[in-house]
Structures are given as C-alpha cells and as structure tokens.
C-alpha cells in the first residue's frame, strides 16, 4: 500500500502555469507520511499557496498530479475533499456571523448528523478556547481568534489530512504559540497529517517533522530540520569591530578561519572550517590588536539553509498587534 493510501500525500511533477505569467509551481515532487507535520517553507510568491490550492482541489494543475489520502486530485476531487480539512490564507469567515453560526453552518454542510452537530461544534469551540466568544460576531474577533475558529471549522468532519496555509501570519507571538500547540496536538494525539505552509523559519523548525523549502516554484531542499541544518554543518562567527573603520581588518582576520558569509552592515562573518573554535578567533583578533564590540557564534539555522540554497535570506512578514477583543 502506498503511503498516501491512508492519510498521506504524494505529489508527482505538479505544475501550475498562469496566463502570461511564470510557472507558479514548476514540477514539484514530495511525499508526506501519514501523521507527519510537513512544513512547506518559502517567501511570498514562491508557490506555496498555489500548491495548497491544487492539493485541496480548488485549482486544477496544469500538469502532473497528486494523491491526497489515497485519492487523485484530478479525478477524485469529492473523495479528496471529504478526507481533508483546510484553513487557507486569510481566515475565510463571515464577519456578521457568530462563531456558533459558523459552526452550525459548517457542521450541517459537512453532513454531521443532526443530533451531533451542536455537541461537535461546542467540543471544537471549547478546544480552541472560543466557547466564551461563541455568540459574538466574528467581525469583533482578534486575528488569533479568527485563526483558531478557522482551524476549528476545518476539523469539523475529523479530516485525515489538514492543510494550513500560513496559519500564523500576522499573529502576535502568544497567539502563534497557542496555534502551534493545537497543531502539534492534532498530529500527536489524533494522528492527523498536517501540510503547513509558512514564511516563519521558527515555525517550521518548532513544528515540522520534515521541511520542504520552495523557491520560485521549485523545491530546493527537503528533510528534517536537523538534517537540513546538519547539511550546512558548521557554525558561523560574526564580529562587529568597536571602530567601524576596522571592519575590513576584522574581515581579513576572520577569513583565516573560514569562508565569508553575509553579515549586517559594519560587521563581518565567516562560516567556520571544521575544527576551528571561537577561542582561536578571539586570540587572532587580539593578536591583530583589533577591538571588538560584539562577537557572536551562530549555530546553523533554517535561515542558513535557506540562504545556502537560494543565495538570499528569508525575511519573515512582520507580526501585527492583536486586534481589540
């Protein structure tokens, strides 16, 4: 039995072209095992959301195909939709309806038996901490509350595969952490497969069992966060001289210890060769009589992986202040 037959995802050469535009998704291949959280990481416009729209059957692929929970997205759309839940970019809620109204509509449209609708809705509202706000119009919810309601609505029919498209973009750190807890619990306790797109490196690092990095429509790296970081391997050291005029001299000393990597203005940084350590760098700078205002050792991060694979840094979107509750 293929891994997608139960609750996984198999993508084979998926392509999406838009009229007069570049290929938004350019022949990607990926596999997500049942119960796995797969982080799909990339900047704006990389093709993340287009991939999700195709996998959820909302957008037909130009070429290639995929099986979600064992069903072909091109030929078995209804079966795919019955097996999945999705919280797409921007919580798709009606500001004039209450949380309870949304739950009533969703449970009915998902075919939950009449006698179970109310209990199922209350259970989910309780789980995402919205029971107290259930009778308030969604227009007055904060960004975090909307996202949590969106997630609860996606879970109404107990989907085997859950698609979350940038679920925490725009949320404050506390709301983001709450949502991470819920997503992790879904995978751990309910065995739900989660396909999560994000622009946040930390999100992918904390939540995902495996990460796929997408850039310009193609997957440039894939693996567990640990394996991807290990691929980069060595830590980097960044030094900021006390006198900005010494920046080139500091860079010269650092270059003895490894190859230069991008650094903030006024600072120099290198990826350390194996065997080098920070103490030796300090001694060399001291021997060159260079005063240093700041010296940092960076362990490899997914940011470094992204930089190494794409040649540029991934700038995450700014968080927004929570809306008035």
């Amino acid at each position: 039995m293929s891994l997608a037959a139960s609750a996984g995802i198999e993508v084979e050469g998926l392509v999406r072209e838009f009229k007069n535009g570049p290929r938004a998704v350019d022949g990607i291949h990926l596999r997500v095992a049942p119960g796995e959280i797969y982080g799909f990481l990339g900047p704006n416009g990389a093709g993340k959301s287009t991939t999700v729209l195709m996998l959820t059957t909302l957008l037909p692929p130009t070429d290639g195909t995929a099986r979600v929970a064992g069903h072909d997205i091109r030929r078995e759309g209804a079966a795919v939709r019955a097996a999945i839940g999705a919280a797409l970019q921007e919580a798709a809620l009606d500001p004039l309806l209450t949380g309870q109204d949304h739950m009533r509509l969703q449970t009915t449209l998902q075919g939950i038996p009449k006698g179970e609708r109310r209990a199922r809705g209350d259970e989910l509202l309780e789980r995402v901490g919205l029971m107290d706000a259930a009778d308030r119009k969604v227009g007055g919810y904060s960004g975090g509350m909307k996202r949590r309601l969106d997630l609860a609505l996606a879970l109404v029919h107990r989907p085997r595969v859950l698609f979350l498209d940038e679920p925490t973009t725009g949320l404050d750190p506390s709301s983001r952490a709450d949502l991470w807890d819920e997503v992790a619990r879904l995978a751990r306790e309910d065995g739900t497969t989660v396909f999560l797109t994000t622009q946040y490196l930390e999100e992918a690092d904390v939540l995902a069992d495996r990460v796929g990095i997408i850039d310009k429509g193609g997957i440039v790296a894939e693996g567990t966060p640990e394996a991807l970081k290990a691929e980069i391997g060595r830590p980097s050291v960044e030094a900021t001289p006390a006198d900005r005029a010494d920046r080139d001299a500091v860079a010269g000393v650092l270059s003895r210890f490894g190859s230069a990597v991008p650094a903030p203005p006024g600072a120099a940084a290198v990826r350390l060769e194996s065997g080098e350590n920070l103490a030796e760098v300090v001694r060399a700078l001291d021997a060159a009589d260079l005063a240093v205002a700041d010296l940092q050792l960076h362990q490899p991060s997914l940011d470094d992986v992204f930089l190494a694979k794409t040649g540029r840094k991934l700038d995450p979107p700014a968080s927004e202040e929570p809306a008035a509750v």
Partner: peptide
C-alpha cells in the same frame, strides 16, 4: 464578498 474573503472556497471544500 464571499469570493473576496475566501468564504466561497470554504463552501466549495464541503460536500454541499
């Protein structure tokens, strides 16, 4: 507005 907010997509993902 349902098109604009994505609510139509939410409906389209249900078996309705």
């Amino acid at each position: 507005r349902d098109v604009e907010t994505g609510f139509l997509n939410r409906l389209a993902l249900t078996p309705m």
